[in-house]
């Protein structure tokens, strides 16, 4: 459980949470739309503020469909270079 949470904190940005039909570990239906997530923690975060996160994921889907990508925020490297 702790390692799963640590993995989520280290890895899961909204861009990484969003997945296609086959890869979803969790789903949420909000406003008549179904959002599919790579990790259950992504769904839990979504449920803390569905109005905000539905708009966020809708915007990410719009970017994906237009061929644009959003660079994930840079994270401090755990491996010294």
């Amino acid at each position: 459980m702790t390692s799963a949470l640590l993995l989520f904190l280290l890895v899961a940005t909204p861009e990484e949470c969003l997945v296609g039909k086959g890869d979803a570990a969790a789903t949420v239906t909000h406003g008549g739309k179904t959002y599919r997530f790579r990790y259950a923690e992504c769904r839990d975060e979504f449920l803390t503020d569905p109005e905000r996160f539905s708009q966020l994921y809708d915007a990410l889907i719009e970017l994906q469909q237009s061929g644009e990508t959003v660079a994930p925020p840079s994270r401090p490297s755990l491996v010294p270079s």
Partner: peptide, 12 residues
């Protein structure tokens, strides 16, 4: 831009 919208909604 939609990118700014994404950035805002991540941490308003």
């Amino acid at each position: 831009s939609v990118k700014c919208k994404v950035e805002f909604l991540k941490n308003p």
